Every structure is written in C-alpha cells, then in structure tokens.
Amino acid sequence: MATIIKSILKFYYYMNDEISDPRTNDWFLMSSPWPGVAILGFYLYFVSNLGPRLMANRQPFKLDRILQIYNVIQIIFNIYLIYKALTLAWLNEYSYYCQPVDYSYSPRAIEIAQTVWVYLIVKLIDLLDTVFFVLRKKNNQISFLHVYHHTGMVIGAWGGVKYLAGGHGTFLGLVNSFVHVIMYSHYFATSLKISKPWWKKYITQLQLVQFAIILYHFAQLLWTDCGFPVWPAAIFIPQNLFMIVLFGDFYYKTYIKKRTPKLNGVKNGFKNGIPNGNSKLQ
C-alpha cells in the first residue's frame, strides 16, 4: 500500500512540477489542480443537485438585465482573445500546420502565455451559463452535452496554461472565441427581442464546423513534426469527434427530426400528414 501511495505522489509531482510550464506555475489557479477541481466539483454539485433543490419551491429569478450585461462582457472578452491570438500569433509568425510552444521569457512569449491564462478565466466565467439556467429554472436546457462541454473546456484550458501556454493548441482558443462572439451576440440580441429563432440552427452548424476544424488542426500533428508534442492529438481528436457526434445528434433532433411530421400518428399538429387543428400552420 505504501508503495502505491508513493508511486501516486511521485506521478503527481511529476505532472504538477516537473513537466509543467515553469512560467505559469505561480499564476492564479495554476500552482496545483486542486483549486480548479474544487471549482468544477462545486459547479457540478450546484447545477445537478444543490441549485435545483434550492429553486424547487421558488419562482424563477428574472435576470434579463444581468444576462444582457453578462453577454456584453462575454463578447468583449472573446473579441479581446481573438485580437490577441491574431496579432501575437496567427497573423504573425505562427504556422497553421504545426507550431511549437515558445517557453522563453521573451515579452511576446509571456504575453501569449498570459492570453492563454485569460482564456482559462473566460472558460470559468462560461460556467455561469449553467448557473443562470438553474436560477431561471430552465432545467430542460441543462443537458449532458451542455455540462460536459463546459466542464471539458475548463479542463482543457487549464491544461493548456499548465503545460502548453502557446503554440499549436492556441488555434483552438482562437476558433472557439470567434464562435462565442457569435453565440453571445445572438443571446444579447435575443434579450433585446431582435434575434430570430431561425438563426439558432446556423449557430449549431457553426459549432459543428468549429469541431471539424479543430479536429483537423490537431490531426496535423500526426504527420507534421515541429517540436509540439503529439499527445494533445490523442486527446483532442477523439474529443472533437465526440463533440461532433453530440452536437450532430442535437442538431438532428432539434432541427431535422423535429420538423418531420409523422405519417402515422400525430406529431406537431399533423395526423397522417394533414393539419389536425393543433398545427401552428393554421
């Protein structure tokens, strides 16, 4: 037993200290995984158990103004991340085929690492999406896909700051930030009653394109050697395939299957293909 514990501790110190990026080790939330684990643990407990119980006998909170401010903050943060990613890296000297991490203490390398850290903070702020669902009693929107995606993004972002604060993986943050600008702009427009529901399917399509692009981006590591480690490909290729499956299933059920009337039986106001009086078309 003592040998097992010793091996676990040795592995922990190896992962946390020996192979981590020394430039980021002293940054907020980065000295060990435990603060992040605590945040995610409380998040999962709150959205799955504590929050719904606290709201069970309460009226939903009206958070319209708070959500508008939140959406604007998200738009600003993500535009900032896009600007930094482009000006420091992807419109500068970065290669779209393969880009190693610059672990130096040069001003540019440090600024890139700091931008990756800001991305982590934004992913933590994203967790409020689910908290707001709970407070507004929109429990039907707290799906496995939603929680899994938000949790996974925090874990991935933390790992990026801890081990790979720069280089090839930052392209994920660039693409993801662009998608989030579109998403939160839509949410903000919806809160002002100027967004149209039919736009929503194109946002899901954009998310699917995002996962496909990121999948290919990391797949390039399998045949291109630039000094960036290959192991992230073993994580992000299956991860993005999984997200394509999950989002694809959501898209099919929400925008394709849902609109297809049953020929036998009643669905969406149709019976045997004929409006039965409950159809929204009448």
Rank of each mutant, 00 (worst) to 15 (best):
S7H: 14
K10W: 06
Y14L: 06
M15T: 14
N16P: 05
D21N: 15
T24R: 08
T24K: 02
N25R: 14
P35E: 09
G36V: 09
G36L: 01
F42R: 01
L50M: 06
P60G: 08
Q68H: 08
I73Y: 08
Q74K: 04
L86H: 12
L91Q: 15
I110H: 06
T115C: 09
L120T: 01
V122D: 00
V122A: 09
L124T: 01
T130R: 06
F133N: 04
V134N: 00
R136G: 08
N139P: 02
H146D: 07
V147F: 02
V147P: 07
G166Y: 04
G166R: 07
L172K: 10
V179P: 04
V181G: 10
I182C: 05
M183S: 05
S185A: 15
H186E: 12
H186A: 11
T190M: 02
L192K: 15
P197E: 00
P197V: 01
P197R: 00
L208H: 00
H217D: 07
F218N: 02
L221Y: 04
F228V: 11
P232L: 02
I235S: 06
P238F: 06
F247W: 04
D249L: 13
T260N: 12
N264L: 15
N268C: 11
G269D: 08
F270M: 06
G273D: 05
N276C: 10
G277R: 12
K280L: 13
